[in-house]
Simulated scan of single mutants.
Amino acid sequence: MVTIVKKLTNTDVSQRLGVPTEMLNMLPLYNREHDVPVRVLDDDTGMIYEFKLSVRAEGALRPVFQYQEWRAFVHRRNIRAGDSIYFWEKASVAHRTEYRIKLLRTFW
C-alpha cells in the first residue's frame, strides 16, 4: 500500500488541493479534456466525497482536486494550512479500488 502525505498550504485550504504528481499513479486515468470524479472515503468520519481531478489541457500537468467538494471536506473538518493529509488506495470487498483520506492536525 502506497500512502501519499501532503502538508497543506494556504492555497490547498482556501481554493483547491494541489495533487502531488506521484499521486497520479494511483488515481484513475486523468483526462486533459474533462474533470475525472474520484470517490474518496474520509477514514476518520466515514463520509464519502467525490473530488474532481483536473489537469491542465496543455503543458505541465499541475493536477488539482477542484474547489467544490474539496472545500466541503476542508470546511466540514475545519482544516487549516499546516495540517497534513494521508491519501491511499485500498481494495474494497467489491473488488473495486477505494480511495481513502485521513487528516493529521497540526497543533499550535
Rank of each mutant, 00 (worst) to 15 (best):
M1N: 06
V2Y: 13
V2W: 12
T3M: 02
I4D: 00
V5P: 00
K6H: 00
K6Q: 01
K6L: 00
K7Y: 00
T9H: 01
D12A: 01
D12E: 04
S14T: 14
R16L: 12
L17Q: 01
V19R: 00
V19M: 06
P20T: 05
T21F: 01
E22Q: 13
M23L: 15
M23K: 05
M23E: 10
M26S: 03
M26D: 04
P28C: 10
L29V: 10
Y30N: 11
Y30C: 12
R32S: 05
R32N: 09
E33H: 07
E33D: 14
H34Q: 13
D35P: 03
V36D: 09
V38H: 02
R39Q: 15
L41H: 14
D44A: 15
T45V: 06
G46V: 06
M47V: 12
M47I: 13
Y49L: 03
Y49Q: 07
F51L: 08
F51Y: 09
F51I: 06
K52N: 13
L53D: 07
S54I: 01
V55N: 07
R56K: 13
R56C: 05
A57Q: 14
E58T: 00
G59D: 06
A60S: 10
R62F: 14
R62G: 05
F65Q: 02
Y67Q: 11
Q68A: 11
W70Q: 05
W70I: 05
R71Y: 04
A72D: 10
V74I: 15
H75N: 13
R76G: 03
R76P: 00
R77N: 14
R80E: 14
A81D: 12
A81W: 08
G82E: 15
G82M: 07
G82D: 15
D83I: 00
D83K: 04
D83H: 03
S84C: 10
S84V: 02
I85W: 05
I85A: 04
Y86P: 01
Y86G: 03
Y86F: 09
F87W: 03
F87D: 00
W88N: 04
K90V: 05
K90H: 14
A91K: 08
A91F: 04
A91I: 08
A91C: 08
R96W: 07
E98M: 11
Y99I: 01
Y99V: 01
I101V: 15
I101K: 07
K102H: 14
K102F: 14
K102N: 15
R105G: 08
T106P: 00
F107D: 13
F107C: 12
W108Q: 10
W108V: 09
